[in-house]
Amino acid sequence: MKKPLWYEKLERWVEGDSPALPEPLAHVENPEPVKEEEAPVQHGPSLLRSAGGTAMNRLTTAFGILCCAIFALLMLTTVAYLPRFGDADNAPENETSRRYIEQGLEEVGATNLVTNIILVYRGFDTYGESCVLFLGATAVIMLLEADRKNTSQKDRLALRRSDALDEEERNQILGHITTVLMPVIFLYGLYILCNGHLSPGGGFAGGSILGGALILCENAFGARRVQSFFNHKVYHIIKVGALILYAVLICYTIYVGANGLPNLIPLGTPGSILSAGIILPINVAVGLEVACTMYAFYTYFGRGDL
């Protein structure tokens, strides 16, 4: 039975790329169609890509430069309107910074006023920032941790061979100097960590010194030596423990502060090592988190494992 014309038209519309149409599409004639996964990523209009590579590329580059120039012009003209840096009557010299400077020591208790601001006045933001670190490390592990998709047997053998080679020809000078320097560096890192509420420094600075020390260790003595005291288990325990400790302290402070309850953590005498309430433990927690993250970045990029 012959189909009416309108029905045929409707059918063609519905069947869009149907091979039953008079002009069959390539993927039906081709016994092995291009698989979606391996296909090169198609982005933007295919029209543009087919219209000749180099001329189009040049045009895109020119357009990009034009956009950047316009943006730069916009920024430069705006800067002219902004107040001069350091003037006494600038907008940021207002009741906010005045209270931070004048009452910070009394209200929060750390002689390092910057620490007061980042860890207590704006503590929620800083907790967010340390979660960014945690998230960054997790994303790197997700991408780079050796698994069957991103590492072949050959890669693994090559890594083991280069490890063995390193083990044989260890750099003697680096090893000896590191042995001497290591305790000093660790001590300095810990000092910056624990003294963060009294002098410039704190968790982020001290943590990166500790992380740097771990990286130096790995270079001087090999990954296996570091793994003997810093393996997956230790890494996870330190990382999670530090963040949980931080979360508990900050949650307590927020909850108590927001509900007008008395804060039971003593502030101590300003200037002494055990003072400033939650700031000292938070600095230690942040420092451990930063050290772990730095070392994890380094080893996962290099070896795909801790």
Partner: peptide, 13 residues
């Protein structure tokens, strides 16, 4: 509004 801590706007989060 819920102050995240003992310090309301414009001092705290």
């Amino acid at each position: 509004t819920y102050a995240m801590g003992a310090f309301p706007a414009p001092w705290g989060n």
